[in-house]
């Protein structure tokens, strides 16, 4: 029976992932801001096969929320087999450009909170010697683009942190997974027009559940983003800067 913790548990992608995990049982510890929404996800996972569910409401944008949720987690479980970090926001790039406060706030929720959580979790996982830490970053971290580099930079910070953590834990059997979704149709992207590159949360959730099961390292989902980003990373700056990407 696995002990599973999910931060940002009612994010559309996290919820879809949990639905793929629940049928094989498992005890879930669900963290998010709104306890009503957490209860709804908990009930759903119970019906799908989760053996136990616990919820903890916490604002992860503030350090106290990060600390409190880890404390509550280890007050409930002695060990954690799977930790999934899925919370985040899509900041308004233009507003961030005009306001350093907003830029820093965007970093708080998309970068610092992850780094805080990972620091606390890493200690436990290192002692434990096993388990899986999976973090949803983004393809946006692969190259800074004028349209959303605040978000991209925060995601990139987390990716680099994960690289280092994976290195540190290489001698243990802890898996550190960096999940980089492309465009996913979720509340976060509700304002965008959707085209053929867009994936459903269910598809991305299935990929994440598989990556957790198989213990991958860096996962692009859907898979074709690996190649799109390979190209985007390699376009020379004088060409790249002419685009509106």
């Amino acid at each position: 029976m696995k002990n599973i913790v999910i931060f940002g548990a009612y994010s559309a992608i996290a919820e879809a992932t949990a639905r793929h995990l629940a049928p094989s049982g498992g005890r879930f510890f669900l963290v998010g801001r709104d306890s009503g929404k957490l209860d709804q996800v908990a009930a759903d996972l119970k019906v799908r096969g989760a053996t136990e569910t616990h919820v903890f409401a916490s604002d992860l944008a503030v350090p106290a929320g990060v600390l409190a949720s880890i404390e509550a987690l280890y007050g409930t479980f002695d060990t954690v087999d799977v930790a999934l970090l899925a919370h985040g926001t899509l900041p308004d790039q233009k507003a961030c450009e005009a306001d350093a406060g907003q830029t820093l706030a965007a970093f708080e929720i998309n970068g610092l909170s992850h780094i805080g959580l990972l620091t606390l979790l890493a200690e436990r996982f290192e002692t434990q010697g096993t388990g899986t830490i999976a973090v949803i970053t983004s393809v946006s971290g692969d190259r800074g683009r004028q349209s959303n580099y605040v978000y991209g930079a925060a995601k990139r910070a987390v990716s680099t942190f994960l690289d280092g953590l994976r290195h540190r834990l290489a001698a243990t059997s802890v898996q550190v997974i960096d999940i980089r979704p492309g465009f996913v149709d979720t509340p976060m992207t509700a304002a965008f027009d959707k085209g053929p590159l867009w994936a459903s949360p269910d598809k991305v959730g299935a990929d994440i559940a598989r990556a957790i099961e198989k213990g991958r390292t860096v996962v692009y989902t859907p898979w074709f983003w690996r190649y799109i980003m390979l190209i985007i990373r390699n376009v020379p700056a004088f060409v790249f800067h002419k685009t509106k990407l």
């Binding site: 996800v41 009930a43 759903d44 119970k46 019906v47 799908r48």
Partner: peptide
């Protein structure tokens, strides 16, 4: 379509 949670069974 995304109003799709089970509540109890």
């Amino acid at each position: 379509r995304h109003l799709d949670r089970f509540i109890s069974f």
